[in-house]
Design a protein around this nucleic acid. Structure first.
Length: 330
DNA sequence: GCGAGATCAGAATAGACAAG
DNA sequence: CTTGTCTATTCTGATCTCGC
């Protein structure tokens, strides 16, 4: 149903229909009423594309790209972004690219074809050479916001949670509670995990614990996490605290520690990151770094909107992270 | 007060023309 | 005659100006 159909049905010209739709003056009340009745009856919806041709307005469409929308903290961020942008009249296309560069390229190509106004990349996994190349190739002039990552391009703005300082604080607080053999579990190689690792090493150095540090690499696979747990106890048998890059890893390690008879937090304290549902549902409840994903999402949406509407926005915005204390730490 | 027609971006398609 | 290249036209749906 187009403005032409409405005009034909109401027995007026398309100009008259347009005037009614846009509340222009100079229309006889009787004509206005007649056109409005046809509009109401036919469930007419204006074409944003056609309107954009005339008014030089865009489709107000934003792409939200996540590695995997099933991941809880990405879902939380994406949800907040979508809610905020919708409130301001933007539509959103939500995508899960995975880490495969081919699939990432497919989605960038799709976004370029659909002429989105802007893009928000959710997750530090997008801080990569591949993504930088894709942006240059497919959308060099479109405003892009990346959360928990940084890309050195003029059209890309970063929202970064200060997870480095938060993990640094975790180590310091554990040390104050007489925990001096603290291990760090790297469960990924994203920028976010590297920042946490940086915080861990910074604190270890400032507390002069360099001879008692341990970093173990793993992934989110349950068996791998269990293996990482045993590796920690093998390499540093009297470990009395473990900090993990993500809650899911921390919970898996906590379960394995309990299974082999270790008491949490008396024998070993455990801290996770992301402050997810896992932290609240685990036994004991997990102390976790809260990286404020809602605030990150809301800020990302606001920064993109400001950029799209021609306002000046900072290249990099830092959001602080805090620690939510529960029962897995003394 | 209202209708006719120009206009917008840009991809798809049609048509003209030259070269081999 | 076929093929390639270039230019012109068409198409989409809405808004807006001009003129009756």
């Amino acid at each position: 149903m187009t403005i032409y159909d409405i005009a034909r049905e109401a027995n007026v010209s398309i100009s008259t229909v347009s005037r009614v739709i846009n509340n222009h003056p100079g229309i006889k009340p009787k004509t206005r009423e007649k056109v409005q009745q046809v509009l109401d009856r036919s469930n007419y919806v204006p074409s944003v594309i056609a309107r954009g041709l005339v008014n030089s307005t865009t489709l107000k469409m934003v792409g939200i790209i996540t590695p995997d929308i099933r991941s809880e903290h990405h879902a939380n961020t994406a949800y907040t972004i979508e809610q905020e942008l919708t409130r301001w009249g933007y539509g959103c296309i939500l995508c899960s690219t995975g880490k495969d560069p081919k699939r990432q390229e497919h989605y960038f190509n799709m976004m370029a074809e659909r002429k989105v106004d802007g893009i928000i990349l959710v997750g530090s996994v997008f801080q990569s050479h591949t993504v930088e190349k894709l942006i240059q190739q497919y959308m060099p002039n479109i405003s892009i916001v990346i959360t928990n990552g940084y890309i050195e391009l003029d059209n890309v703005y970063s929202i970064i949670t200060d997870e480095c300082s938060a993990v640094e604080k975790c180590v310091t607080l554990l040390y104050e509670k007489k925990r001096d053999k603290i291990a760090f579990v790297m469960d990924d190689t994203t920028n976010s995990i590297l920042e946490k690792k940086k915080g861990y090493l910074k604190a270890i150095e400032s507390l002069s614990l360099s001879d008692r540090k341990l970093i173990v690499k793993t992934d989110h696979n349950i068996e791998e996490c269990k293996r990482a747990c045993h590796k920690i106890l093998e390499l540093m048998p009297d470990t009395n605290a473990i900090i993990c890059g993500e809650d899911i890893t921390a919970v898996t390690i906590m379960n394995e520690l309990s299974r082999i008879g270790k008491k949490i937090p008396d024998d070993i304290a455990v801290i996770g990151c992301n402050n997810s549902k896992y932290a609240e549902l685990s036994l004991p409840m997990l102390t976790s770094v809260n990286n404020n994903q809602e605030a990150v999402g809301a800020t990302a949406a606001r920064i993109l909107r400001d950029a799209l509407e021609g306002r000046k926005v900072p290249k990099k915005t830092i959001i602080s992270a805090d620690i939510v204390f529960r029962k897995s730490t003394p």
